[in-house]
């Protein structure tokens, strides 16, 4: 039993220990969780459900009554910002999952099997990577039409190459190691070796990449909204910043400020968390 307990103090346990001892990382984790909570509450209609209601004069500046000011239609900027977390967090999450699935699958298959399969996959991602990401985004949104589904798919389908490369490299390094040979010796098939044996050993890369991908997706949503290819008919930080370009010249800075600040806090938290995760999970960095 004691032996069991000691074995469970694995890389993950140490990583968790070093993560929670880092005050900055814990703060960031709490911020991220708070944003998720806000997004869930807002999607259930428990907060900011009145974002579309006119509650005061057009462009009322921030005051004690209207905390973040009002927009052109007299809607609360605060409520819109909260509603925007829904879009931002879901874009980050869905995009991250899509790119994770594609990147891990193709990278694992290429690295593990090698040979012709590897050549084809490497050719595919080299080709794909040669096309500027903004062009792919545009083409995909043309095909799917505008809306949040197109945003998910466009960002997810264009962001897997980096992870795929890393995973392929790790699988090449791992596939001939003793533990994999041992797994083969007791009759483990390819599928089992890939997912049950090698994947857990490279999972830290997936996690680090996911946290970085998350914030890139949040930032990209804003750009897509500016290009007119983003979310339609509901508030997002992207559409808020896009609206602001006409308001700013009239001195109405609060909508831009609210959306920028809301975005900055969560992106910053993800950035710092990503770095902390890398420090905690990457064995190569131990002792530096």
């Amino acid at each position: 039993m004691k032996n069991e307990a000691q074995k469970s103090k694995s890389l993950w346990y140490h990583a968790w220990e070093s993560l929670v001892s880092d005050k900055m990382a814990v703060t960031c984790l709490i911020i991220v969780l708070a944003y998720f909570l806000l997004a869930i509450l807002s999607s259930l209609g428990l907060v900011a459900s009145d974002y579309a209601k006119e509650i005061g004069p057009s462009y009322a500046p921030p005051s004690s009554e209207y905390l973040f000011g009002l927009d052109i239609f007299g809607r609360s900027v605060l409520a819109k910002t909260i509603k925007g977390t829904e879009v931002a967090m879901s874009v980050g999450l869905v995009t991250g999952i899509i790119s994770m699935i594609i990147g891990v699958f193709l990278g694992a298959v290429a690295g593990y099997f090698g040979g012709k399969i590897d050549e084809v996959i490497v050719w595919f991602y080299t080709t794909f990577n040669s096309i500027p990401y903004i062009m792919l985004l545009v083409a995909i949104t043309f095909i799917l039409g505008k809306g949040i589904l197109a945003v998910y798919l466009a960002l997810g389908l264009t962001s897997w190459v980096g992870l795929c490369r890393l995973i392929r490299g790790e699988f090449i390094r791992h596939k001939d190691r003793e533990y994999v040979q041992a797994a083969a010796a007791i009759g483990g098939g390819d599928f089992r070796k890939i997912f049950k044996h090698i994947l857990p050993n490279v999972l830290h890369i997936v996690i680090i990449n996911f946290s970085l991908q998350f914030q890139v997706a949040i930032k990209s949503e804003v750009i897509l909204s500016y290009l007119g290819l983003g979310v339609q008919g509901r508030p997002s930080w992207g559409t808020m910043i896009n609206d602001a370009k006409l308001e700013l010249a009239r001195g109405n800075w609060w909508q831009l400020a609210a959306a920028t600040a809301a975005m900055m806090v969560v992106v910053l938290a993800f950035n710092i968390l990503g770095d902390a995760l890398r420090d905690a999970l990457d064995p190569k960095l131990k002792g530096k």
Binding site: Q215, K219, V222, I223, Y226, W237, I241, N242, A244, K245, L248, A249, W253, L256, T260, M263, M264, V267, L268, N271, I272, D275
Partner: peptide, 18 residues
């Protein structure tokens, strides 16, 4: 640096121009 990276590029352009 990380903080600078966390601000939307649109915000830089809009505030800078303004």
């Amino acid at each position: 640096c990380v903080a600078l990276m966390s601000i939307s590029s649109l915000a830089y352009i809009l505030y800078g121009q303004m």
